[in-house]
């Protein structure tokens, strides 16, 4: 190939989802990854089209599980998320509910103010969320968060939900569908991460700590030895479901499994990140050092190469049964309630 025919050294400044690429974005590494990943994507797209053409193709749960783990093509993502999470069924059972929530007038002002504080602070690096964008997704974001806060008053609005709703809107391009997917996540898939006591979040952070003690004792010993609380280094992983922590494509691949298989995937991802960088983390000699390391392990080619990353997520942490998770969650929850 002649140099002149090669793709330019710098690819598009904005990614397919509207996010501006950072100044230090490694276009060459991304290009290399993408050329291999495009082959995978094409192959998966063909397979998914065939599956979805079948009558009740999405009912073949074991096939769907295998397919979802290998990634849902972007054009089918919203549809499959809605179907496998049950959000579609809820939406069909409650026609017009979303619109009615937004028409009500009660108890809005405090909620509205909390949401407004974060509107300009949700994805300022995404061109679709700019005030000047046509249409500007800030309005959709506001509506979805407001409707959800009115629908689930015990949760209301919690920072972090803005990023999750923002991703849902980018993928579904539909407020009502985003609302029902948010409901599936917060109401059914995740333990109560966002309620005022944040008990589910604290519980899952402790569960992760326990899993690391079992599977990666050296890392656990390092953190315990320095008295580092797991919440210090991983709270954002749980609250934002890896948004703004891992690359967009990787987050979406994780969410594919999250909607289909549930919250266990979060532990798998966290364990994979820690295990892969175990030696690097163990170099830390102080609390700030440990914090830095945990921040650094969420960037670079390991997390950018989402297909390989997802394969590792299902192999590296080893077996992780739902029975174990449930037991650990019960224990940690009881311990947290006893501490109060």
């Amino acid at each position: 190939m002649q140099p002149a025919e090669r793709s330019p050294a710098r690819g598009p400044r904005v990614d397919p989802y509207g996010f501006e690429r950072p100044e230090d974005f490694d276009y060459a590494a991304y290009e290399e990854f993408l050329s291999a990943y495009l082959v995978v994507l094409t192959r998966r797209a063909l397979k998914w089209s065939r599956l979805l053409q079948e009558n009740g193709g999405l009912n073949r749960t074991s096939t769907v599980k295998r397919y979802v783990r290998k990634g849902i093509p972007l054009e089918h993502r919203a549809h499959v998320w809605l179907a496998v999470s049950g959000a579609q069924a809820w939406m069909e059972r409650n026609p017009g509910y979303y619109q009615r929530l937004l028409q009500g007038e009660e108890g809005k002002s405090e909620l509205e103010e909390a949401i407004r504080t974060d509107l300009n602070r949700t994805f300022p690096d995404n061109v679709k969320f700019r005030k000047t964008a046509q249409p500007c997704l800030q309005k959709a974001l506001f509506n979805v968060l407001l409707a959800y806060g009115l629908h689930n008053r015990s949760v209301g609005y919690c920072q972090g939900m803005n990023f999750i709703a923002g991703y849902l809107i980018l993928i579904t391009k539909n407020e009502e569908e985003s609302f029902w997917l948010l409901d599936a996540l917060i109401g059914r898939i995740l333990p109560d991460y966002y309620s005022p006591a944040m008990l589910g979040l604290k519980m899952d952070q402790e569960v992760l700590a326990e899993l690391v003690r079992m599977k990666l004792p050296a890392v656990a010993a390092l953190l315990d030895g320095h008295g580092v609380l797991w919440t210090l280094v991983v709270s954002r992983w749980f609250i934002c479901l890896f948004v703004d922590i891992l690359p967009v494509e990787t987050v979406l691949r994780i969410w594919d499994c999250l909607f289909n298989e549930g919250s266990k995937i979060i532990f798998r991802v966290a364990l994979t990140l820690i295990k892969q960088h175990q030696a690097f983390i163990l170099e830390a000699t102080s609390v700030p050092d440990i914090c830095d390391k945990f921040k650094q392990i969420t960037s670079g080619s390991f997390v950018m190469e989402c297909h390989t990353f997802m394969q590792k997520v299902f192999s590296e942490p080893g077996s992780l049964s739902m029975t174990t998770i449930t037991r650990l969650r019960e224990n940690c929850r009881a311990a947290l309630l006893a501490q109060r």
Partner: peptide, 14 residues
Amino acid sequence: AGTFISTVGIDFRN
């Protein structure tokens, strides 16, 4: 100016 995101949990800078 308008290019930062709300801090969730905790973030670090040195």
